[in-house]
Amino acid sequence: MNVLSGDQQIQIIACLTEGQSIRATERITGIHRDTIMRLGERVGRGCAELHDRMMVGIRTGRLELDEIWGYVGKKQKKVERHELSHKGDQYTFIALASSAKAIVSYHQRLLKEAHQPRCGGQPVRRSLQSLPRP
């Protein structure tokens, strides 16, 4: 089993965070796309765990809510019935502490589930009710 060196891992993550596609990263680094995807998934899980540990008890006077649209695999109008659970339009809902420019909470949902925005697994209105009043 081959193991990526620290320098190779850094190069891959640098390419991905700069917006390079997985295939472009494969061409640049010479490392197979499956390996790049496994590394990206592992780093992503670690980032999510770090975010969940660090973003606790945040006090902010103003919270901005936003959504970002994207698609997974193909756009919604091209998705076939058997693909609905894992492909199509996707929304990412973000709660941003405007003073600190920190993402306090986020949640991703496919279009079929996106009828009610949620942040951190909770409905947005419940998240807002838990904020301290100035």
Rank of each mutant, 00 (worst) to 15 (best):
Q108V: 01
I12L: 08
R126G: 02
M54W: 03
I13R: 00
Q90N: 04
H82D: 13
Q122W: 12
R125L: 04
G73A: 10
T25S: 02
P132K: 12
R59D: 09
S127Y: 15
C47M: 15
E113Q: 06
L96S: 11
G121K: 01
K101I: 09
G120D: 05
E64W: 11
R53K: 07
T17V: 13
K87Y: 09
K78Y: 10
A48L: 14
R53I: 02
Q90H: 06
H51Q: 03
R27N: 09
G120M: 06
S21D: 02
S5Y: 10
L84W: 04
E18G: 05
C119F: 09
K75A: 07
C119P: 00
V124W: 04
P132W: 08
K112T: 04
S130K: 12
E64S: 14
R62G: 05
R23V: 00
H86F: 14
H86Q: 12
E67K: 02
S85G: 12
L65C: 13
L50R: 00
S85E: 14
M37S: 14
G120C: 10
Q11T: 15
E26M: 03
C47I: 11
A48Y: 02
I94R: 11
W69E: 08
I28T: 12
S5N: 10
L39W: 06
I28N: 00
R27L: 14
Q116W: 02
R59G: 03
G57L: 00
G61R: 03
L4V: 01
R133F: 13
A102I: 04
R109N: 05
I31L: 10
L63H: 07
Q11C: 14
F93K: 01
I94L: 15
C47Y: 06
Q90Y: 09
R118W: 01
S21A: 06
E80A: 14
M55L: 06
G40W: 04
K78Q: 10
K75F: 05
A48G: 07
R27Y: 11
L50H: 01
E80N: 14
A95P: 03
P134F: 04
G121Y: 02
L128M: 15
P132L: 12
I68A: 14
M37E: 09
A24S: 07
L50F: 14
Q76D: 15
D52K: 04
L39D: 11
Y91C: 05
Q122L: 15
R62V: 08
